[in-house]
Design a binder for these strands. Structure first.
Lengths: 225, 225
DNA sequence: GCGCATTATAAACGTAGGTATAGTTGTTCT
DNA sequence: AGAACAACTATACCTACGTTTATAATGCGC
């Protein structure tokens, strides 16, 4: 059985980097224990598994985290697991560790987006540095994703017509052009446009345009030669 | 001496991927020759050097290209050369090849942005695939850079005051607010704003805002909670 | 000194954007 | 049936934006 939920939480005195979780997938029990101890010693929460399958079957908490992954594993290998996580749209930054690696493996791992690839034996500090870099990368990714998610949920509150108007506003069309495009009266466009600004909480047109950029809203724009 | 400028150009019947250059830095003469032949056989131009220093001293043409780089070299090593190129802001995509590599090397290379890291012996097709991927990456990078360069040169044609107005317009301020900010009459701001639109060749405000995004123009914007 | 670009402004006018108020029609949920 | 909402329009009014024409001071290069 895997020693999960062993989050170091004896007191409320947790380090600044608290509530970041390091997932460990490593089949060797003693190695798994020593990795767990290492991360806990610097105040990181750890959840460890003995195989990829175990981790996939558990419910992963939605917090800043990274994954320390042994390349050689029973069942799914580390590299296969990396591919599988990508397929499932799970973007956790991965640090590979291995005792018997080769260059081809490491290059594949790095091409697949791994943060680092360490060979045993490695210094504790190397792994800790990699974990810090990895969690930082995850924090940024989550930040970006949340920004987009927020904007998207605001955009969802718009009625279909309002969304259409917003898109055309973003392309730089004038109200009367938008009206012609949608077969509306100009006044109607003005009203919807007002709704868009309110619902999207945009303080200015510049603001709204930037939101459409973030959302990746694009229409046929033959502009900017 | 290095066999440079041996660009395969007997006729004007060059392949579709023409005028992309593969730079080769490899100290072993026979290897250098076979690499040169390999790339020329698929219609790529090749410029080969025996050391990093030679390449740095030559004038690099400003076209889509990639670099096939031996890790072990006399003088500057391949990895050191990679660092040096980054320091010089030369962003050519690198494919490492090596006969005596290790994992640490390959990971460092990939972390440093290398496209691939191949160990000898490798199949010709592997290297060719990597070269295609690398030149494609370079093509995209150049495309993006040129877009920015064009916008920048347009921006440079603006007078200081016009640039200031453009920045404040991008933040979403109204003309009267911009006027207050710069200590101008509103009418003056309107005039400059018109100049900005003309000189930047922006068809709409939306267009202009996107240009400022591309240019990375940012001012203190306490917007978008 | 002359020409030129930059900075700055004014008057005047026209267009575009935005809001408030009010009303019609149609759908959907309760 | 009635409430709630989406879509749509109209009148009226105000603000913001943009251009044209004209004027003028400053500074820079030749």
């Amino acid at each position: 059985m895997s020693e999960r939920s062993n989050s170091q939480r004896e007191g409320s005195k947790v380090e600044a980097s608290a509530n970041a979780i390091v997932f460990v997938v490593e089949d060797d029990l003693s190695m798994r224990r020593s990795l767990t101890n290492l991360f806990q010693s610097v105040g990181l929460d750890v959840v460890a598994f003995g195989s990829a399958r175990e981790m996939l079957q558990s419910t992963l908490p939605d917090v800043v985290s990274c994954l320390v992954l042994d390349v050689r594993l029973p069942g799914l290998s580390g590299l296969e697991f990396q591919t599988e996580l990508a397929r499932l749209n799970i973007h956790i930054p991965i640090i590979f560790i291995t005792g018997h690696g080769d260059i081809l493996m490491s290059v594949r791992a790095m091409k697949g987006g791994a943060v680092d690839f360490l060979t045993k034996p490695f210094r504790d500090q190397e792994l800790l540095d990699a974990a810090v870099a990895a969690t930082e990368r995850d924090r940024k990714r989550r930040e970006d994703e949340q920004t987009i998610a927020k904007l998207n949920s605001l955009f969802e509150t718009l009625s279909p017509r309002e969304q259409a108007v917003m898109k055309l506003v973003a392309t730089g069309l004038m109200n009367k052009q938008i009206a012609a495009e949608l077969g509306l009266a100009e006044i109607t466009v003005k009203i919807y446009r007002g709704h868009v600004m309110k619902k999207m909480r945009a303080r200015s047109l510049a603001d709204l345009i930037r939101m459409t950029e973030t959302l990746g809203i694009r229409t046929n724009r033959p502009e900017q030669t």
